[in-house]
Write a protein that binds this DNA or RNA. Structure first.
Lengths: 155, 155
DNA sequence: CCGATATATTTCAAGAATGAATATTTTGAA
DNA sequence: TTCAAAATATTCATTCTTGAAATATATCGG
């Protein structure tokens, strides 16, 4: 594994990479936000919550949801409350551990997300049309290593 | 240039890449936020504004600043106002075009940013230690193409 | 069993962010 | 020239977001 650079050259390259990556991420997020707002009258954080719950159909606790989305506990409460109001998500109070709350999509939430997801997928496909299989091979590997490395550093 | 996929395989890969990239970006942002808060009692958006102004020492208009950072005009006003209060940034009212306001770092802003930037650079260097020169070569190219492609799609 | 500690969630205050509306100034086309 | 359209920045209402404090429940060591 590589290490932090003593020399400045490597550090500079890493910094530039980060800035560029951040720019790309924001551009994509802005496009997604616009799409969700205009076409579906919803928001990115709500979509993210629904996506996480769709993937884990059995549901997630509030804490697990926060960790999955990398957002704070308080924020998770806010967004989930909104989705509950809209009838897309439901809170289930655990019997064994009465501190825990499991959150799941309602039937309506599932149906709605499936429509959203299809369009979301199309949009991502278009935004990343620049990337072919070779690019994706390389990036998949790099991002996996990067994610693991970052997780390790957290602990 | 590649195109959106008719087939689902490429679309799936692009989607997975996006999700992974978003995760990495959030992890890094969270670490930066923590560092700025604990060590310097400041925030990520304020740092971003200062970084943009440091790079363009002659200053930027509010609109240029918004475009550079990919944030809304209203938000830019909020963050700049805060920095002005703190004495780190200054508003200059243009004579030629009285709609325009040019924003620059104050001397104190420059001094403060230079300290911040050095530590920021170290942190990024550490967080991205996993990436060596070969990785950076590949990523630089990919992100540049991606950014150009996204900008083109905007227009 | 008890008290301390840890875990899970919500609430709260403050800041960040958006998009729409507003006010002002400039530009450009008839 | 003139005036409608475009451009610039701020304000506003709403939502998102954080981190800390509060609340409630569970666990663990003695």
């Amino acid at each position: 594994m590589a290490v932090p650079s003593e020399s400045s050259a490597l550090a500079t390259r890493r910094l530039k990479l980060w800035i560029r990556m951040l720019g790309v991420t924001r551009q994509v997020e802005n496009q997604l936000r616009e799409f969700l707002r205009v076409d579906f009258d919803t928001t990115l954080p709500r979509f993210d919550v629904m996506a996480a719950l769709y993937r884990r159909r059995e549901g997630l606790t509030m804490t697990d949801l926060s960790r999955t989305l990398l957002i704070s506990n308080g924020n998770t409460t806010t967004v989930v409350s909104r989705l509950v109001q809209d009838g897309l998500v439901r809170r289930l109070y655990s019997e064994e551990d009465r501190r825990r709350i499991t959150v799941t999509l309602t039937a309506e939430g599932i149906a709605r997300f499936e429509i959203l997801a299809a369009r979301h997928r199309e949009l991502i496909d278009r935004l990343f049309a620049e990337l072919g299989d070779e690019d994706l091979d390389a990036l998949r590997d790099v991002f996996r290593r990067l994610r693991d490395s970052l997780s390790a550093q957290d602990a």
